[in-house]
Amino acid sequence: MSIQVNRLADPVVRDFVVAVNAHDTGAFNALLTPGATMADDGSDRDIADWTDREIFSSNGHMDIESESDGGRTLLVTFRNDTWGEMRTKWHFTVDGAGKISRFETGQA
């Protein structure tokens, strides 16, 4: 059973999921701080390259299974055209201005 995106506790994380699922790169990039960082399975990656490859050019989609840490950590069924469907965990660091300064994802 999944959580409806509009019910996610953290508004910035909610907007992130909406942007990913809509393949809206403009809205996605607007959520990030300048110099934002990310990691995939524990390895730092270039955000622009990774998100283009894993999300935007491959029809990435997030179905939220559960949330914790006030909505800053998500358990997600993620799917894209490259890898198919996988269970992943996402953790977000949000700054005081409501922008994402870092996110980490990986197999759950």
Rank of each mutant, 00 (worst) to 15 (best):
S2E: 11
I3W: 04
N6H: 10
N6Q: 13
N6Y: 05
A9I: 01
A9S: 14
D15R: 15
V18T: 07
A19N: 07
A22Q: 11
D24F: 11
D24H: 11
F28H: 14
A30D: 13
L31W: 05
L31Y: 08
L32P: 02
A36E: 14
T37N: 08
T37L: 06
M38Y: 01
A39E: 15
G42T: 10
S43N: 09
D46E: 11
I47A: 12
D49I: 12
D49R: 10
W50V: 01
D52W: 01
R53K: 08
R53W: 11
S58Q: 09
H61W: 05
I64H: 02
E67R: 10
E67Q: 15
S68N: 06
D69A: 15
G70V: 09
G70I: 12
G71P: 02
G71M: 05
R72H: 13
T73R: 15
F78P: 01
D81L: 04
W83M: 12
M86G: 15
R87D: 07
T88E: 14
T88G: 01
F92T: 02
T93C: 01
T93N: 07
G96A: 12
G98Q: 04
G98V: 00
G98N: 05
F103Y: 15
T105D: 13
T105V: 15
G106R: 06
